[in-house]
Design a protein around this nucleic acid. Structure first.
Lengths: 144, 144
DNA sequence: TATTCGCAGGCTTTAGAGAACATATTTTGC
DNA sequence: GCAAAATATGTTCTCTAAAGCCTGCGAATA
């Protein structure tokens, strides 16, 4: 569904959001350990999220990554996914056709429209806070 | 969503089903051209479908692949997908966690369950005939 | 018996995933 | 203030698995 990079991006964002709400700034090493991702690869992904104003970064000792608390409520999953994976998840044809639309659909087009709408709806209406909260209360996990 | 191999498997099955209903047996070359897939790669995929009794093959001159007409109504998309991609599409965690279930869910688990159910439902309730029919009437396409 | 085909295995290419390393910037300890 | 440590940034390299290709073999039909 998502690329590995995107999976890490989502998990990292959730973790950073959780820590930021407690006023903490977390560094790369901690993030990678906490979400179970390769450190170097994670660095690249986080940079991309910084460039797109989803995360803030702070260099130097006691530095790391954070999300402004107010942003935790306004950043939607869809923004993170779009930053890393682009819009392939909405646009791409289920059967891999270059041109697949209502006019010239593949045989599964109509059926898949429904699944896509469902997914799009979830991504566009879920903010980081909601996910952070489940984590906080201990009813969801980021690794294992 | 699906692997390339699986996309080709679905498209090939639909095309073969359509031709089989007209009593025609089609060879690899024709199939590959018709669905826009690489010939050698397609060969492997078709072999896999034969092994799993989704397609029949006929060797020698005038040979090729076919589907028994009665099977066109009973073969569901889910069988084709399972043969090529296994059950990753149902089981895999949206965030790539090894262990992600109702007891220890990832933060998106519940939300994704819905999308998965939707998809599973489509695959298990769509037979080849239905897809063949749309193609026949010219309201859907397998290439471009 | 020659030709047309599927079958089988291995080889090559490509793109995603991950690693390594050098650089730049900020804080901290003295 | 200054050196040193801690940290993000940026570039390039390597690994790996999916995707795609090649070549020879064997069966069936005309």
């Amino acid at each position: 569904m998502f690329s590995k990079a995107c999976e890490y991006a989502i998990k990292a964002s959730i973790y950073i959001a959780q820590q930021s709400l407690q006023g903490k700034c977390v560094n790369l090493k901690t993030i990678a350990k906490e979400i179970g991702s390769p450190e170097a690869f994670t660095a690249k992904i986080l940079q991309e999220l910084v460039k797109n104003n989803i995360l803030k970064s702070k260099k130097g000792s006691k530095g790391g990554f954070l999300i402004e608390p107010k942003s935790v409520y306004t950043i939607m999953l869809s923004e993170i996914v779009y930053t890393i994976d682009g819009d392939s998840i909405y646009k791409g044809c289920g059967l891999g056709l270059k041109q697949c639309n209502a006019q010239k659909p593949c045989p599964l087009h109509t059926k898949f429209l429904d699944v896509r709408k469902n997914l799009k709806n979830i991504l566009e209406n879920t903010n980081l806070y909601e996910l952070t909260n489940d984590l906080e209360v201990g009813i969801s996990y980021l690794n294992r």
